[in-house]
């Protein structure tokens, strides 16, 4: 999978690159619009991460150019500025998702995966991990072809954990992911523990492997050892 990061903040671009790198994602970076346009003209990307405030103009120019060239790259806007207008304009110009800075890299990764799934496997939205099979559209989970009963939140958590395989996830990152739009209203992250515990129990009841590891009691990790 190949991704173009259009972001003038090098440190951030590099952090994204190093985080995505281990998940078989090849990242290229562009620190301004011109470089980004050149790269888009030359290569095909699965996804473009687009900052809006760039040194030589507004990221919307790139969106307009992609549209003009009938390119099918999925675009996730990553911007510090979040207004209803910029969101609407972004979506009108063909952006697929909008992530406001600051964000957790784990969140970015699952958003990219979801976007690629939507783009590439039109309709066939299945995520598999060994004996676990998740049907994203019908919201059902099977372990060894046997249906298990998970709540919406637990499925969400499962997808998030699998998507971030081998990554250490902090409680706050998980809490924010599970809270969605309400993340700003979080006061403590203790509820994460309950969800993890329930998910773990349901998976082990279904004779699935024990993939959820605890990291020093403060974070979690999906890992197959």
């Amino acid at each position: 999978m190949k991704i173009l990061i259009v972001e003038d903040e090098r440190e951030l671009a590099e952090s994204i690159q190093s985080y995505l790198h281990t998940n078989d994602i090849v990242c290229e970076m562009a620190f301004n619009i011109q470089t980004a346009l050149d790269k888009i003209a030359q290569y095909e990307y699965d996804c473009v991460l687009l900052d809006l405030m760039l040194p030589d103009g507004n990221g919307f120019e790139i969106l307009a150019e992609l549209k003009k060239q009938d390119k099918t790259e999925g675009v996730i806007i990553i911007s510090a500025k979040e207004t209803l207008e910029s969101r609407i304009e972004g979506f009108n110009l063909g952006a697929d998702d909008y992530l406001t800075k600051p964000f957790h890299l784990s969140e970015l990764l699952v958003r990219i995966q979801a976007l690629i799934r939507r783009k590439k496997f039109k309709g066939n939205n299945m995520v598999s991990y060994h004996e676990i099979q998740i049907d994203i559209l019908s919201k059902t989970v099977k372990v060894n072809t046997k249906l298990i009963d998970l709540t919406k939140k637990e499925i969400d958590l499962l997808l998030y954990l699998i998507g971030n395989e081998n990554k250490v996830l902090s409680k706050s990152a998980i809490a924010e992911h599970l809270s969605g739009d309400m993340a700003d209203m979080l006061d403590n992250h203790d509820f994460v523990y309950a969800h993890i515990k329930n998910l773990k129990r349901k998976l082990s009841d279904a004779k699935s492997g024990d993939y959820i590891k605890t990291v020093y009691g403060l974070g979690y990790k999906w890992q197959n050892d």
Partner: peptide, 17 residues
């Protein structure tokens, strides 16, 4: 502040790996 915060957050996410 959002941008440095984003860098800060991303660096922590990277470091805990």
């Amino acid at each position: 502040l959002q941008t440095p915060l984003a860098v800060f957050q991303a660096q922590i996410d990277t470091l805990i790996q």
